[in-house]
Simulated scan of single mutants.
Amino acid sequence: MVVLVDKFIEKVVLVDKFIEKDKFIEKDKFIEKGLETKPLLQHSDYYVWDFWYYYDKKSQIYHLFYLNADRHLAASDRHHFFARVGYGTTEDFRAIKWIDYNVLSASSQRWDNTSIWTGDVIKIKQGFLMFYTSRNQQEDDGMTQNIGIAYAETIDAKQWQPLPDIRIAPDRQFYEPKNVVGDSSTHAWRDPFLFRDRGQIFMLLSAKSIHLPLGKKGAIALLRSRDGSLLNWESLPPISQSGWYSEMEVPQLYQDTQGEYKLIYSTWGKGDFAPTTHQAGGLQGLTASHWQNFNPQSPDLILPGRSGLYACRIIPELEGEIVGFNVKNGGIQRSGIKTNYREVNRDFKDIDCSVIGKS
């Protein structure tokens, strides 16, 4: 039986403390027992955390991109400052072929001269684009995040080529442009997620609202492509800014079986002040009949932080199963919880970026 809160997934009987009222099975024990039966996919040499992927429908292969760093750095949280992007493949998230630990990394010759953080990958006419997060250690306090774009002709390229002239920064009309003194968590302009709707291209980002109080600035930014080229973007008002979170990380958009939209995000319990979640943190979400009309007043708790998984992805190709990284040990792990969420329009194969292909 699936454990969720406030009817976020259909046909599930929900109880505040127990999964099944008559059996008195505690939620935490249920989740832990479920995870014990799912293989923890760890790299033999490196600590692995956030991931994103491109699914090839013809071959039915998931092409994974994952953050990784030397394993000994994780104990002191220093792995974030040495992160690079690795590549692997999987058929079902039960086993991963770890192919290359470094297909994109920072360079002292570019603006993104520190570690690489979470991204998104899409297919275009000329190949593939990877949107990623990075920083410049010489600017501000070294924590100001921007979005970069890298190109590869094939999804399994040994090295992705960053486009050095592209750097997507926050619009200070809506979003904090850098760290704010006294805030409880670092600057946020990261974790891109692209989608299309009615002939336009949009991007979601983890951000900080300029209009919210310290410690509760977490927001999900909305950007729109200016010309459909994927290279020029304009900032729009946040798609969500409730004032209840320090951070709203790894945002994604899906639809349920009834066609309603689901905006999901991850947050840590210590920065979760939503009245309906009781500082549970973890994977949470909002529901709306249209993706531009989310009401932030009633967030749903999908998978609490106690599950041990974070920065989770919904995998539509696996009946919407929740897959995340194991916080304690590193590595990628299925949850066994299936949402039946469907993918929104993320088909960019018709986009002509010939200028990129010739660079």
Rank of each mutant, 00 (worst) to 15 (best):
V2D: 11
K7V: 07
K17C: 11
E26K: 10
K27H: 09
D28W: 05
K33M: 13
T37K: 15
K38V: 13
Q42K: 15
H43Y: 11
S44W: 13
W49D: 09
D50Y: 10
F51W: 12
Y62H: 13
H63T: 02
F65E: 04
G88W: 10
T89A: 12
I96Y: 03
K97H: 07
Y101D: 13
N102W: 10
L104R: 08
D112K: 08
W117I: 07
T118I: 06
G119H: 11
I124P: 07
Q126G: 06
G127F: 04
G127D: 01
G127H: 11
Y132I: 14
T133A: 08
Q138P: 06
D140M: 09
G142I: 08
Q145W: 07
N146C: 14
I149A: 02
Y151M: 02
E153S: 06
T154Y: 08
A157V: 07
P162W: 11
P164V: 07
P164K: 02
R167L: 14
R167A: 10
P170F: 02
D171F: 05
Y175A: 02
P177L: 06
K178D: 05
S184I: 11
F195G: 00
I201L: 08
A207R: 03
I210T: 03
P213F: 12
L214Q: 13
G215C: 07
G215S: 00
G218P: 03
I220T: 01
I220C: 01
L222S: 00
L222I: 04
L223C: 08
R224Y: 03
S225M: 02
L231H: 00
W233L: 03
Q241E: 07
S242H: 00
M248H: 04
E249V: 12
V250R: 15
Q258E: 12
E260P: 06
E260W: 14
Y261T: 12
Y261I: 08
I264E: 01
Y265N: 00
Y265E: 03
G269E: 12
K270H: 15
K270Q: 13
G271T: 12
G271I: 11
F273E: 09
A280I: 12
G281S: 07
G285T: 05
L286P: 05
T287K: 15
S289W: 08
Q292K: 15
Q292T: 15
F294R: 03
L309V: 14
Y310L: 09
P316F: 00
L318T: 13
G324M: 09
G324T: 05
F325L: 06
N326V: 10
G331D: 00
I337D: 09
K338G: 06
K338M: 10
T339C: 00
E343V: 13
V344M: 08
F348Y: 01
D350S: 13
C353Y: 05
